Computed example of a mutant assay.
Amino acid sequence: MREQIKILVVEDEDLTRNGVVKALLNYFGSEIIVDTAENGIEALDKFEEKEINLLITDIKMPEMDGISLLEILNQSNKECMTIVLTGHAEFEYAQKSIAYGVFDYILKPVNPKVLYESVQKAITKFSELKKMKTNLKLVEQHAGTLHPIHTSKNRIIQYITEYVMENLDKQLTLKEISELVHMNPNYLSGLFKAETGELFSEFILKIRLYKAKELLAQTDMKIYEVAEAVGYQTSRYFNRIFQEHEQKTPNEFRKLFRNN
């Protein structure tokens, strides 16, 4: 069962507030949970009490207006989609809310069909953002929290790192890289170790696996295509290396993202 979307309707006019709530429940039913507030101060209390996924707020209200409400929510890093209700006369003023990431505007009197379409789009966008954040957390958890690209100030190491990132589909041996920068392989190996704290071969392996996990998580490429893209000539060898270091096969890693 899909998680219910929690909506807060902030409107000082009883008729408009009740009409919006009724329209939402008629269209979305049990897919949503709707709460209400009559002004910005009451709305802030609601945000402290519970999680809000979608805020639908009027602009002109007593005690605290919609712009002030959005400003405070923005400063406190409250994450939710926002739809603003506004009249023709106050639309120019309402546009100030653009700075606070408002998703959409609905002119009053509220047309139920327009409300439904706007809320449906906001819910879809919210779900996409939530999915994206979940995937990013999984990437950090399963691909490592530190990006494998080194930030050495040594220009040779910087050049090698950039070259490796752009040529992961190649073999990338120490001998080849040494010839590229006109250095003795043994000297370059020592320099790389001193600058990065790891062997060149360890760096290549780490960056291949990191890129592979990105492709598995973010694309629908076949396993053999991912293997080739990160420099493995056979998917069988790629599978073995991946499982050896990640304790799961590439397919298992991908399913972890699909299931979340």
Rank of each mutant, 00 (worst) to 15 (best):
R2M: 11
E3V: 12
Q4R: 15
Q4A: 15
I5Y: 03
K6S: 13
I7D: 07
I7Y: 11
L8S: 05
L8T: 10
V10M: 02
D12Y: 08
D12L: 06
T16I: 15
N18S: 14
V21S: 05
L25G: 04
N26W: 10
Y27V: 12
F28V: 03
S30C: 00
E31W: 06
I33G: 03
D35M: 04
N39H: 14
E42C: 07
E42W: 01
L44W: 08
L44R: 04
D45Y: 09
F47R: 00
F47V: 07
L54E: 00
L54S: 01
L55F: 02
T57Q: 01
E63V: 12
E63C: 07
G66L: 10
S68W: 13
S68I: 01
L69N: 07
I72V: 13
E79Y: 08
M81E: 13
M81K: 10
I83V: 15
H88W: 07
H88K: 10
A89R: 12
A89L: 09
E90A: 12
A99N: 06
A99Q: 15
G101W: 04
F103V: 00
F103I: 01
F103E: 01
D104Y: 14
Y105K: 09
N111L: 01
V114R: 05
L115D: 02
E117S: 11
E117Q: 07
S118K: 14
S118E: 02
V119G: 05
V119D: 00
K121A: 09
T124R: 12
K125G: 01
K125S: 05
K125Q: 08
F126L: 15
F126H: 14
K130G: 03
K131V: 06
K131Q: 06
K131A: 04
M132Q: 15
K133G: 06
N135H: 13
N135W: 03
A143T: 05
H147N: 08
P148V: 13
I149A: 15
H150G: 12
T151S: 06
R155G: 02
M165C: 14
N167D: 01
L168N: 04
D169T: 13
Q171K: 15
L172R: 07
T173R: 10
E176K: 15
I177H: 07
I177V: 15
S178Y: 02
L180A: 04
V181A: 12
M183E: 05
M183V: 05
P185Q: 10
G190F: 00
G190S: 11
F192S: 01
E195L: 02
E195D: 05
T196S: 08
E198S: 12
F200P: 00
L205N: 05
K206D: 14
A212C: 02
T219C: 13
E225F: 04
A227D: 04
E228A: 15
E228W: 11
A229R: 10
G231T: 13
Q233F: 09
T234A: 04
F238P: 01
N239I: 02
I241G: 01
Q243C: 04
H245Y: 12
K248T: 14
K248Q: 15
T249P: 07
P250G: 14
N251W: 12
E252Y: 03
F253Q: 08
R254V: 02
R254Q: 09
L256R: 11
F257K: 03
